[in-house]
Write a protein that binds this DNA or RNA. Structure first.
Lengths: 154, 154
DNA sequence: TATTGTTATACTCTATAACTATA
DNA sequence: TATAGTTATAGAGTATAACAATA
């Protein structure tokens, strides 16, 4: 079966993350801040603004009970806190604390270190790559804002 | 802090996989063949040829005991089998079976479906992207061959 | 003595089921 | 009756420690 170019590119992209530095970086970031991957991702989402729990459930396709225990953990560590939902008394929203913001900044800093292999591309080529990836990223509906790389300063 | 272009590109790449289709695809593939991610990755590596256990340990930076139980699981399912190491009687090598090969093929087929967002790029741009990624990939020492996308047929 | 691999065990992450409170 | 969230519990996934066999 002949695979179209897009499929090859997609596989290459996966290989880069699954096989190489990618996982290790995420793993190390988790250890550094002592949070499981699930909790860290939730925190990253919260860094874009408070969210109702229900929304976290649907964003991550995780079980509600797991969101509960994740938010429990974030609260214990002082990285987030529950707040009453303004209109629906069943619901709660979760907001990131300042301390949580520091964690997010630290994690972002660590994850922003590209593997050395990127150096095989010239600066111009790196820019090309970035532009192509950004265009794809902009077409992705489901990627929570916070994971997206932001302009150029942090 | 101003981040260089390579860092931005790296973050974009991570966002694409961590936030979007990527994880879900891997997850679904695991469910489809009923193997945990660790076991699936080991199987993918084995598809490039038999390996001593010790090498699997260092490749994945996982605990030896976990490799043991992973290989146990693969053997139970008939996807791999242990063989005596030719020269070192302490060691064992692990080889993929034909049945394991079918699983790998199925998984590859599934993972090769790029997210629809790739369509925002023109065919020429997709090719550009592929070439850039391939160059980076070729400079990566640690990516097990099997995860690498192979030429164009399967 | 160092290395390969296994066993037994415990811990962490995530899901399922049953429940409470509000809509 | 349906929805938001919690509790209690069980399961998968992974690691740690102690061990047997070979180098």
């Amino acid at each position: 079966m002949i695979r179209p170019v897009a499929a090859e590119a997609w596989l290459a992209l996966q290989a880069l993350l699954l096989g190489g530095e990618g996982y290790r970086q995420l793993h190390q970031a988790c250890q550094e801040v002592d949070l499981p991957p699930g909790a860290l991702k939730v925190l990253l989402v919260l860094s874009a603004g408070a969210r109702p729990m229900r929304e976290l459930v649907s964003t991550f396709r995780l079980d509600p009970s797991y969101i509960t225990s994740t938010v429990d953990a974030l609260e214990r560590r002082g990285f987030a806190r529950r707040e009453p939902h303004p209109t629906d008394r069943r619901a709660k929203t979760v907001a990131m604390t300042d301390e949580g913001g520091e964690v997010v900044a630290r994690v972002r800093e660590r994850m922003a270190v590209p593997p050395p292999s990127f150096d095989v591309l010239s600066p111009a080529e790196q820019e090309q790559l970035l532009n192509l990836l950004r265009r794809i990223l902009d077409a992705e509906p489901d990627i929570p804002e916070m994971i997206r790389p932001r302009p150029t300063t942090d």
